[in-house]
């Protein structure tokens, strides 16, 4: 009853990005997905969220088959994600960025004002929680890299996903922000959200994860709690190339 894939595979031309990846993540926990560059982590996220159609295999979430579904349907099923290269809507304000994360359903809902009081309050709540409420009126393109990463996360959280996939949340952020992101993930997890985090910063991974899955060449080669992964020979081999 969680996010699960069986035999997920994807090739780009001659490059095998995913090679029959069967993974099952733990509900309610902070899961980490680690592996060397090019081991297929981002492609895995893209297949799970419907951004890329897998060549084979299945994706299921809480018992529902999500294989090949449109990304917006998967998002509405409760899976939110961030992108490795941080995607925000550059020429929208930070507030509008967060507001656009709750798409309306139905015609009447669609014609309601985009600036409903309740939504604005909720959006400002997330901006405040991530410490960027003072930037609500600034366009996303004017924000620093770290602020954009926080903004992207605020948008994803606005949709209240049960499961959040983060692709390198610590990539390119300064040490102070890194700590804050770590604390935030633990807090959000304590409130009941499941996380799957792709991350290269091992200190962060080891300190916040409950469960780690290690990828190499498009498939999992090990999984377990941090204490076990730290000493796993196959993992060391994949990383150090021995």
């Amino acid at each position: 009853m969680t996010l699960e894939t069986t035999g997920l595979s994807k090739a780009f031309g001659g490059v095998t990005a995913l090679d029959g990846a069967s993974v099952s993540f733990h509900q309610g926990e902070v899961n980490a997905l680690i592996g060397p560059n090019g081991s297929g982590k981002t492609t895995y996220f893209n297949c799970v969220t419907g951004m890329i159609k897998p060549d084979g295999g299945t994706v299921s979430y809480q018992g529902r088959d999500l294989t090949g579904k449109a990304p917006h349907r998967i998002a509405r099923a409760g899976i939110g994600r961030t992108f490795q290269l941080c995607r925000t809507f550059p020429r929208m304000t930070a507030l509008e960025n967060v507001l656009s994360a709750v798409p309306p359903t139905g015609l009447i809902g669609g014609l309601r004002s985009a600036r409903g009081r309740a939504e604005i309050e909720r959006a400002m709540g997330w901006l405040t929680r991530l410490g960027i409420e003072h930037l609500a009126g600034s366009e996303a393109r004017d924000l620093s890299w770290g602020q954009q990463k926080l903004l992207e996360l605020a948008g994803v959280l606005m949709a209240e996903p049960e499961t959040v996939l983060l692709d390198e949340p610590a990539g390119g952020v300064n040490p102070a922000l890194l700590d804050r992101i770590g604390v935030l993930i633990r807090e959000l997890n304590a409130e009941g959200r499941t996380f799957v985090i792709v991350e290269h910063n091992m200190d962060l991974v080891m300190s916040i994860s409950d469960h780690i899955v290690v990828f190499d060449r498009g498939r999992p080669i090990a999984e377990g709690p941090p204490s076990q992964i730290r000493t796993d020979e196959r993992v060391l081999g994949a990383y150090l190339g021995v």
Partner: peptide, 20 residues
């Protein structure tokens, strides 16, 4: 809100999809 969704398509269509 419909308009905001349309504008998010203008900004980044894949991102808009990913947000639902």
């Amino acid at each position: 809100r419909f308009g905001l969704g349309l504008k998010s398509i203008r900004e980044d269509e894949d991102k808009a999809e990913a947000l639902g």
